[in-house]
Nucleic acid binder design. Structure first.
Lengths: 356, 356
DNA sequence: TTGTATGCGTTATCAT
DNA sequence: ATGATAACGCATACAA
């Protein structure tokens, strides 16, 4: 209970210090204290600065940032907007490692640059606009393509820098970060073809937005280049989550023709594997499956997933950087980043069964 | 590009509305507007209220919450504090589904109660105190036991409600949420014994804090009740993460005597399985492994993990509820919740090999 | 029912 | 080098 790494004085102080109180303690005016706090050394004599700094340390003064935000156009607050899907689904989006990894990287980057992160689920454009005004936000990141059309127009209304992830409207004048979505499934499909597969299913919805449509296109292109016709029976137009994956996986196993599956998400791939196993399939012997994203999940699965690495860490960092640079006035260019993807070959894929 | 679900007027307005501007538009005083906004219907005539409400809607007025925070003792901001471990490790804590699931639940609960969530990594008590003062926080949650001794003392200094998760200082007077840590490993160890295992390893550090020590105690108690002596060679005192798990798993496989492993985290269990597989082991045939937490990971692994369910969703909800109730003045009791745990039996455990 | 004055903590501006 | 004043947007207290 003895020596702690902080001054006992702190323990005995009570309530938040204010500039005014420090000024009184130091016998100077508020502005002198303010100038010291803001490092305007030219305006304050060394002696008084030292005296004030000492008091600041002793009292553990922390500026009231609400007051600062009120006065300045900058609040130092950045919002991370997460879509709030329908309550009925009860899906906690935060279970997705893709999202949580990004959030961790955002928080770190923003903090290091002197910003504060607010996390907020949103469901309407109004809720976004209100939030921005409520806290006088300096900027925001939208982590999924959501409310695409509405935001496209409202962008004119929103005066702060806003980074949209995976948002593909090409004539949109905001900041966007995308990846080579099409290339990803192209690579995974091509790889399966190279392994000798011909009956390759696609699991993923392809009408919802550009992102998934592009992934469908990649699949089609690879088949087309190999002169393999599209078989409508092999296309599973479902939401790329675990449960839909299971259902698709079971159906695929039942059909007994398909030897490989291309999915648009690691979660989906996990589900497909699970569903196929339910029907007695062994992976990859009876069915090869590819994921997308290269989330932690793909390394922890068994067998580890062959998947498309979209370099989430880089993507998140680029997004954060893009936002901060815009907020601080640098880098008015580079509005639409498109990041490359790679195929990561792991154990969930192999040559097809001989009997097929 | 045609009919959008919002008024065009919004698009044409510019800049944030203020009470003053609305008052001017309505030809009334600021206070009348303020009273309308705050629903003090007794103070405003119906006619003026309606007129003002119309303008508020048209202009999409959103109150400046920085200004409100400045004025009132309540900022409506709640912080979720996440430990910032050493940079060298480069471990993004957010990769852990345990954390991200909780964060999602916090955000939802706080939002529904009218609060705003700030996410913040912290590494010192000072950084916590500063943050609290900076934003005039209404409350905070600490998601891991961290800075236990320092905070224990500084609690006297911190005037806001603070919920500590997995924080075990029994004479601590703050709000804490814990689980029956000991019971968890007791259950998993006992289950392994019931399956016929005798040579059971423990993987997890047991000196670091109460949480993991308790989990070690549970393991010991189950062995003791079954009259199985502790074998020091079977104890792996390592940090419960994936990589340490791999190393332990390899070593366990090398020793060729151990038939089952109790771990203190799903991540750790995954690592052990991976490591044992590296050495040619098949799970659960050659080695039974139990996890802890029942994170998403344990259902997505193959085989699915037998693990201790600590009901993360309930735990998070209780924590959020405890905090909000305290902030709003209800429920001064119930300061130390201890939640129950269950064993979830899945595929990563089975009877031991016959040759052992 | 409506309006005026005041102050929250901070900083820019303009004195001294 | 230091200090007085005003202002940010809002809401409490009080007056009309």
């Amino acid at each position: 209970m003895a020596n702690f790494p902080f001054k006992i004085s702190l323990i005995q102080e009570k309530g938040n210090m204010t500039i005014k109180e420090i000024a009184k303690k130091a016998g100077v005016s508020n502005m002198t204290v303010s100038n010291v706090i803001n490092g305007k050394s030219k305006k304050v004599s060394k002696a008084t600065a030292e005296k004030i700094n000492k008091i600041i340390k002793e009292t553990h003064y922390a500026p009231n940032l609400n007051a600062r935000s009120l006065l300045s156009p900058s609040s130092k607050i950045i919002a991370v907007f997460v879509p709030l899907f329908e309550k009925q689904k009860r899906t906690n989006l935060f279970l997705n490692p893709y999202l949580s990894e990004m959030i961790g990287i955002f928080e770190e980057y923003f903090r290091e640059k002197g910003y504060y992160s607010m996390l907020r689920s949103i469901d309407t454009v109004d809720s976004i606009c209100s939030f921005i005004d409520n806290w006088n936000l300096d900027g925001a990141i939208m982590v999924y393509p959501y409310l695409e059309k509405e935001i496209y127009i409202l962008k004119k209304e929103i005066k702060i820098p806003l980074v949209y992830m995976d948002f593909y409207n090409t004539d949109f004048d905001g900041l966007t970060i995308n990846i080579e979505d099409k290339k990803g499934t192209y690579l995974s499909t091509k790889y399966l073809i190279e392994l000798g597969h011909k009956k390759i299913a696609f699991v993923g919805n392809y009408y919802n937005n550009h992102l998934v449509t592009a992934r469908y296109e990649g699949y089609k292109q690879a088949l087309s280049e190999a002169a393999i016709p599209i078989n409508e029976n092999y296309i599973y137009n479902v939401f790329p989550d675990y449960n839909s994956g299971i259902i698709a996986g079971r159906d695929i196993a039942k059909k007994r023709q398909i030897t490989a599956v291309v999915t648009t998400a690691d979660f989906s791939a996990s589900g497909v594997i699970e569903g196929a196993r339910d029907m007695g399939f062994s992976i990859p012997k009876d069915l090869s499956v590819t994921g997308y994203d290269n989330t932690l999940l793909s390394s922890l699965s068994y067998p580890k997933l062959t998947t498309v690495d979209q370099h989430i860490d880089k993507k998140a960092k680029f997004a954060a950087e893009l936002l901060i640079d815009r907020i601080s006035g640098k880098n008015e260019l580079n509005q639409h980043l498109i990041l490359d993807v790679d195929l990561v070959k792991r154990g969930s894929t192999s040559k097809p069964r001989k009997d097929s």
